[in-house]
Design a protein around this nucleic acid. Structure first.
Lengths: 195, 195, 195, 195
DNA sequence: GGCTAAGCGAGACGGTACGTCTAGTCTTGGG
DNA sequence: CCCAAGACTAGACGTACCGTCTCGCTTAGCC
């Protein structure tokens, strides 16, 4: 936790309005022009903000766009409820398929690509996007094991890689469509491997 | 073949020495400084070559490095022979695990990352690196089906994604080690799904 | 006088301590780093004062430094007494020579240079530094005329320019040393022209 | 001398067209907007040139404008011919008065002001603008001495300071008009001191 | 003794220019 | 027509400073 002493900090407090404006501008501009063509000047200008205000908060455009992405669309792609627990995974995989092939698929590819050149970005992607979803998947798998829907003694990490690896593979390599059919087939195969 | 028409071209022929020097320089520099920090000037200077000479042959640094990569390490990671055909996949997956976690893993990550911003690079990666390996895998799977080592009616594309997706996933996302244990586990699960 | 109307102002009165601290900081920092490298942030920080407190009192760093300069060294370089009135000018020119070639010569150059870009600063320099000295010189010259030490019908403005122009010329252009010898020679020539 | 070996230098030679365009742009823009408001981007844009091309040749805008000034108007303000040699100085002083009070007077003030903050600039001003004129003046004075128009044993440096100091003093301090009357009066007084 | 207006230190704000860097192209003389 | 060298245009980068604004907090004089 950041200590209370920082609450006592003096001087003008950072503007939340500027913060939000920057995130909105980042998403808007990255959608309009793509990540590479996007510039910090663009973001600042579109947000009606000085460049320093952006750099005070984020070290580079990758970090801005990552934060914007996570703030905006993090809350989506939840695991829907379902009486039969492993079906929750299937449902979420269908959502993910739709998500990856839609307008944000390109954005994820971009962030993932950029992460290869920026360790902090990679860490943020892992910790704030990937891990929460892996954790949820793991809990569901554990429950399914307890319900005897799946084998005991699953290697959970490998199992999750098997379920989701193919999605990111197709997203990045473009070897085929990411649609409901694909999601269902991967789900079918992976579950077959675990049952 | 395009060679004959080039024989007719007038003027000084392109120097193969320069070509090789550029590829060597690209590999050397990309290893030393990383892809992002690498510049075309670096490559040209290290190769003792004018920048024009590089641009005459490749449109940007991604393309140079991709070519250097494929020329250097394309021949490796073959599918070893094995009497039981699906074991050839297992063997190759072990090789791939070693390869991905070694010094060239970083390079692949980089090229893959850069591909997200450069369609031509992505295409080159798909066509010259990925597809030959997928094709080989497919032929082996088809042979295994014929030998009744695997089920009939396999969705080959999905099957290959299931086998290799987890490798690229771990390579890019860094969610775990890529070692022989991992390779064997993914192989075991995927084959179990197909048998 | 404006003082009475200010007495009526309500609220917290301006802190004289802050005022003095700013002037001291300005002199200290401008000596240490030079005028160009000096920033308002520097001055405020060194004075232990908010930037607002500086800007409430002066419009820019030129004005601060000018005030600091005049407050600090205004009282110096007086015209010494002498029974033969024109000798007072000679004495003062020697003082000025010492002053211009000493540590404050650089500061005057700087303020004069900055004045070329700032009308208010130029005005302040003229009205608060130059004119009092020109006025004093004029009175001495008039007295000398009355005493028949000099010709009647002197063009006083031109005469003063002749006396002091060479000092500022050497100060700014650096064409030679500004020492007692120089002062005496200029004095000798100028007086010769007026006698 | 810069050695001949530089003539052998390889690569594309610096473009004289760009060089001239930059100097023209600098003069045009500095006249239009003033020195402070002028920016390197302006100069480059107006010259149709990349910023690097400007920075490759000059370290800052002061240096560009100084070079532009000297290239453009250096050739002017010569010493006219006259049968009585010291009259040549009078004539030149009238030209200088016209020059200082005209459109380039402001530019000289500016360069002189900027020189207070930039040693190289000050040096350029001294060596390339001031010294040639001082040298010419000195030669004329020496000739006048030989012709017995002036006293023997003149301190030439002080004499030149006496002649020209008042011009720069009025230019910089604005204590009065710089017109023919002023020029003639300063000339009359200074020559009276030397005769 | 409480009210209220202005000043206080701190530091974030919008803006602008800086000087550096890289990309990809062009221009030399020479092979 | 290719080569090495290096200058070219274009434009993003991240830093610095400007002069203003916004906090929570004094510090006075006036009721």
């Amino acid at each position: 936790m950041i200590s209370e002493s920082q609450k006592l900090s003096r001087g003008r407090p950072r503007s939340d309005k500027a913060h939000q404006a920057i995130l909105r501008a980042a998403i808007k501009e990255v959608s309009r022009r793509g990540f590479r063509a996007l510039t910090m000047d663009d973001i600042a200008a579109r947000a009606g903000v000085g460049k320093m205000t952006v750099y005070r908060r984020w070290p580079n455009k990758g970090a801005v766009v990552m934060d914007a992405f996570l703030a905006l669309i993090g809350p989506e792609t939840q695991f829907p409820e379902h009486p039969q627990v492993i079906q929750r995974i299937k449902m979420q995989m269908r959502l993910q398929a739709k998500f990856f092939s839609g307008k944000y698929g390109q954005l994820i590819r971009t962030l993932l690509g950029e992460s290869q050149f920026d360790m902090e970005l990679a860490e943020a992607f892992r910790d704030r996007w990937l891990q929460p979803r892996r954790q949820m998947t793991r809990e569901i798998l554990e429950l399914a094991v307890k319900n005897q829907e799946l084998l005991r003694d699953i290697n959970y990490e490998a199992a999750i890689d098997l379920l989701y690896g193919p999605f990111y593979y197709r997203l990045q390599l473009g070897t085929g469509a990411i649609d409901q059919e694909f999601a269902d087939e991967i789900f079918r195969l992976a579950i077959r491997a675990l049952k």
